[in-house]
Design a protein around this nucleic acid. Structure first.
Length: 854
RNA sequence: GCCGAUGUGGCGAAAUGGCAGACGCACCGGACUUAAAAUCCGUUGUCCCGAAAGGGGCGUGUGGGUUCGAGUCCCACCAUCGGCACCA
């Protein structure tokens, strides 16, 4: 007999489908919106959200149910505590992987997506999650992406007013050229083009010069693309992290990604060229140490200032640089390269003449694309200076070091050899020199961010078409009434292999009017997931992306407001979570939302490793399929095991024997109430309504209520389960068993193992009528009474010099003096203290006595 | 290189500055059984003394420190994992 044919420890295969069907039929977890029938305004709200899945062809893996079970436990727990719980699920169904899968299988992405969604949904229902399925959404549904397109139009029709630090309608823009400030704008810039995938990719989608999806080579080429001006919100995206209840590490990741640095822009005059060149530096205090200047190879001014003589070398270098892939760039980063332009700049603080070079270690896209090089106090500049024999001059003295030793010192010290600021510590020197530059009109304070604008267009079929038409080289928005703009039916939706998007093949569709044609690009995968949590609040609304009332109810409350609990993986720390915050802020500024932040509390679940402790992967053959686990042990065991493995946030390896362990526990719960008769049928066991719990049992019951309640609130599910195991162990050995105690256990265990507990609850109701009636899910959460937890007598530990020597049972009300006296009176302690000096006695009531002897 | 997280039995782990190892896995022993599986009961950090009952030493990555008392707080270091990586 193989293990899968083995007799089931309890009939989960019958119980689980039964209850899933019932929750479905009765819409147990459906929650009404304000104004709808059944809405109970007296209850507080709780919005608990999962990162909705990408319905890939592979189906669920065991990582999905980890976070989903955690939110399900919270949702069910809050529901039993009287909250209106919004716990929805949907599908992030547009995007590259779905389309690649469709191409591979030769089917239309709409077909494969529908199949995958059906499979995912069946799998999720098979785990017994309490979702409100009436709110199911899919980002590839026209009724949904109509509003994704509408939000794009909001971005297109808005600008960031630096004076108010807010997005405003473009009509308030006072300038001549509104197209230059729109939050959604067209730009011609070098982008990551992947010929194999036939699309451009965002920086985040390129890893070591290869596409994240499929690992195909990526090259740089200039293309006309749609961009979103996320950089305008850089400061607010940093500032408003402050009030969020997120893991500090994720906040830090976002801050680093946005990469704020404070410094100054300094203007250097050029010899023989008008206007000069501006550099950005975080160390204006080292201005006197600038011995040369470097421009990015692509810098505009290079053409103007390069000398005839140097021109061939420059042209050559520029060409080499432009051909370098990201991979080559990182590989070659150890060796500095560059070319002298033949031109000179003038250092504004000392009128010194310094040579201007070009080098690819200076990036066109950051700061001004030009730097002043201070080799004495910057590692990269020092390396470059050494390679090309450029002078090095120390102008910051390192603490406790000589001037000579201070070369290569990049920290904070004392300014030297710098007439305006000599003797000042770095911070003060920065301030003073910047004040001076500002007064002289030579520079100003400046802040730079690493964050770049978001490349928002893709040359693919399976995404939201842009609600934009082109006429006479000008773009223009479709009216709201023209939404949704659906993609054309295309038999051949494959990428063209050229930058020409596949939508270009639909000639009918492309033609908007006599003189206007449609935008051919589509939106990236992230678009739909930027606002799905809002749609969950009001998924069927045909008038608005979300009604004001629903948005205010579900997203309101709390300090910054928003989703009460959001659980998902760290992989979205800087992508989805940053993009969504950006869109949310735009919609908030434009008056469409009531809160500035989407996600009040964020928790990352740790990834689950294979049994070998390695990351799960097909090639390693260590992938665990949740379907197999459910088949063999049941959904409740899967849920319970994933929560029992360890702390939610921690990375942890899978163990099949561990699953068996929790499966055994569930079977013990089953047999606490059921027993097998001669015929091999499960019938009610030695359960009695007459029996009252003993004092010891009451203590276990109430300690368990307390521990489980507190642990669920703290998302410490593993220890909550451990406590329920203690409960079961305590009751296993006694018969008959008080029905009230068993009911309490079922209530506590229900969020974790809903099928088993519902079945047993129903069984008890049948055998012991007159007790609580109806679905277990609808029962109020049990309360504990502290009175049952305190004992009359406590065991306290007696220590000599911090080492445990003896234990003492004494009344919990005994005074400090009485405890001390009793401790000293015990034979062991008396013997240990004999002939020694008692220096000190520490008494912690109810805990211990520590006797310090000489 | 920079930033962050984590180091506790054979394994997953637990522990408001107060009995380290709850709970589970694995192992070993016992009960039930013709037998096995399942189930139930029990042992199990490690070393030493003891025939046993018992008793003692050492133990939370390493080294210091604070404290009556440190897995927990502070300092330094080491290892593993993750993120960023010419960002001026």
């Amino acid at each position: 007999m193989s293990s899968s044919d083995r007799r089931k420890p309890y009939p989960f295969d019958q119980i689980e489908p039964k209850w899933q069907a019932r929750w479905d039929a009765e819409e147990t977890f459906r929650v009404a919106n304000p104004g709808e029938p059944g809405f109970d305004a007296s209850r507080p709200k709780f919005f608990v959200l999962d990162m909705f899945p990408y319905p890939s062809g592979a189906g669920l893996h065991v990582g999905h149910p980890e976070g989903y079970t955690a939110t399900d436990i919270i949702g069910r727990y809050k529901r039993m505590n009287g909250f209106n719980v919004l716990h929805p699920m949907g599908w992030d169904s547009f995007g590259l992987p779905a389309e690649q899968y469709a191409i591979k299988t030769g089917q239309h992405p709409a077909v494969t997506t529908a199949e995958n969604v059906a499979r995912f949904k069946a799998q999720l229902k098979g785990i017994g999650f309490g979702y409100d399925w009436s709110r199911e959404i899919a980002t590839s549904d026209p009724a949904y992406y109509r509003w994704t397109q509408w939000i794009f139009l909001q971005l297109y029709g808005a600008w960031f007013n630096p004076a108010t630090r807010k997005a405003e309608p473009i009509a308030t823009y006072p300038g001549e050229d509104p197209d230059s400030v729109r939050l959604a704008y067209v730009s011609e810039a070098p982008v990551n083009w992947c010929p194999e995938l036939g699309t451009v990719l965002a920086n985040e989608e390129v890893i070591d010069g290869k596409s994240e999806v499929g690992g195909h080579p990526v090259e740089r080429r200039p293309m006309r693309q749609w961009m979103l001006r996320i950089t305008a919100f850089a400061q607010r995206l940093i500032d408003e992290l402050e009030g969020l209840d997120w893991p500090e590490s994720i906040k830090l990741l976002q801050r680093n990604w946005i990469g704020r640095s404070e410094g100054a822009e300094v203007r250097f005059a050029l010899e023989g060229v008008e206007g000069g060149v501006t550099v950005f530096t975080t160390r204006p205090d080292t201005l006197f140490g600038a011995t040369y200047m470097v421009l990015a190879p692509e810098h505009r001014l290079v053409d103007a200032l390069a000398t005839e003589e140097q021109w061939p070398a420059i042209r050559d270098y520029r060409e080499k640089t432009s051909r370098k892939s990201d991979l080559e760039r990182t590989e070659l980063s150890k060796e500095k390269t560059g070319v002298f332009t033949g031109a000179y700049a003038v250092n504004p603080v000392n009128s010194e003449r310094i040579p201007i070079w070009i080098a690819d270690y200076v990036l066109q896209g950051y700061g001004t694309g030009a730097i002043m090089a201070v080799p004495a106090h910057d590692e990269r500049d020092l390396e470059f200076a050494r390679t090309f024999g450029l002078p090095v001059r120390a102008v910051v003295q390192a603490p406790g070091k000589s001037v000579e030793e201070s070369e290569g010192f990049t920290g904070e010290g004392i300014a030297i050899g710098s007439p305006l600021i000599d003797g000042l510590p770095t911070a003060e020197a920065k301030r003073k020199i910047t004040d001076w530059l500002e007064a002289q009109g030579l520079g100003k304070r400046s802040i730079n961010f690493k964050l770049r604008d978001w490349l928002f267009s893709r040359q693919r079929y399976w995404g939201e078409p842009f609600p934009i038409v082109w006429e006479g080289g000008q773009h223009r928005a479709l009216s709201e009434g023209e939404l949704p703009l659906t993609p054309p039916e295309l038999a051949d939706f494959k990428p063209t292999g050229t930058p020409e998007p596949p939508l270009s093949k639909a000639t009918e569709w492309v033609r908007y009017s006599e003189s206007a044609s449609r935008e051919l690009n589509t939106m990236p995968q992230w678009a739909g997931s930027c606002w799905y949590y809002l749609r969950f609040c009001d998924p069927a609304n045909a008038e608005r992306f979300v009604s004001r009332e629903a948005e205010q109810y579900w997203m309101g409350g709390g300090k910054p407001g928003g989703v009460d609990l959001y659980v998902g993986g760290t992989e979205h720390a800087v992508l989805h979570l940053l993009y969504a915050r950006f869109w949310h802020k735009v919609l908030f500024d434009l008056g469409h939302l009531s809160t500035p932040e989407p996600f009040q509390r964020l928790v990352n679940q740790g990834i689950i490793l294979g049994e070998d402790g390695q990351k799960m992967s097909k090639s390693r053959g260590n992938v665990v399929n949740p379907d197999d686990v459910i088949h063999q042990y049941g959904a409740d065991a899967l849920r319970l095991y994933e929560m029992f493995m360890g702390p939610l946030e921690q990375m942890k390896p899978w163990s099949m024997t561990g699953v068996e362990g929790v499966s055994r526990f569930l079977a013990r719960v089953w047999r606490l109430i059921m027993e097998e008769n001669q015929a091999g049928e499960w019938v009610l066991g030695p359960v009695s309504a007459e029996v009252e719990p003993t004092k010891a049992q009451l203590k276990v019951i109430h300690a368990t209520i307390k521990k489980v309640s507190e642990d669920i609130e703290a998302l410490a599910f593993n220890t909550a389960i451990a406590q329920m195991m203690v409960f079961v162990n305590a009751f296993t050995s006694t018969t008959p068993r008080p029905v009230s105690a068993l009911r309490t256990l079922l209530q506590l265990l229900n969020p974790f193992a809903p099928h088993l507990t519902s079945e047993l609850w129903e069984t008890l109701e049948r055998h012991f009528p007159g007790g609580p009636a109806g679905l277990l899910e609808d029962q109020p959460w049990p309360r504990y009474d502290e009175a049952y937890l305190v004992e009359d007598e406590v065991e306290i530990v007696l220590q000599i010099n911090g080492k445990v020597r003896e234990k003492l049972v004494i009344s919990k009300d005994a005074s400090k003096e009485a405890v001390e006296a009793a401790a000293l009176a015990t034979p062991k302690i008396a013997e240990a203290v004999e002939g020694k000096t008692v220096r000190k006695v520490i008494v912690v009531p109810g805990k211990l006595v520590n006797i310090v002897v000489a």
